[in-house]
């Protein structure tokens, strides 16, 4: 098992698709990809978790770092398409209350361009 990411430019920012298993051994892959997209002032990133089957606290740590970074550069981080087990882990951590999470990719794209 591993983790892969793919980036594409979309209206308002960047879309990062995350595929595979996000745990302590693969978290550095996401950390590099995601923080790399949040370096410039005003950077906006939509993360698509449709193909993410598993996340542990090591993965949540990266998402939290990215959310803090997005705030620092006055940008935006939106997550979308959390699958049931992944959504459960976000819920258990309380992260659903402090992160911007959209149900669908379409809703996520809309949040990214919202003022």
């Amino acid at each position: 098992m591993s983790l892969n990411t793919a980036t594409e430019a979309i209206e308002g920012g960047q879309l990062l698709r995350v595929l595979g298993r996000l745990d302590s051994s693969t978290a550095p892959v996401l950390e590099k990809a995601l923080l790399g997209l949040l370096e410039q002032d005003g950077a906006r990133v939509l993360v698509d978790f449709a193909a993410l089957g598993y996340v542990s606290s090591a993965g949540l740590r990266v998402v939290l770092m990215a959310a803090k970074q997005a705030r620092l550069v006055k940008g935006r981080l939106v997550l979308c398409e959390l699958q049931p087990h992944v959504a459960d882990v976000f819920e258990m951590s309380g992260f659903t209350r402090i992160l911007e999470i959209a149900e669908s990719e379409a809703a996520g794209r809309a949040r990214l361009v919202a003022p």
Binding site: L60, L64, A67, K68, S93, I98
Partner: peptide, 15 residues
């Protein structure tokens, strides 16, 4: 705790 103050870590044992 809100985003700014949220410490990184400590969640695994909570799970």
């Amino acid at each position: 705790t809100d985003l700014e103050q949220r410490p990184i870590g400590g969640l695994g044992v909570h799970f």
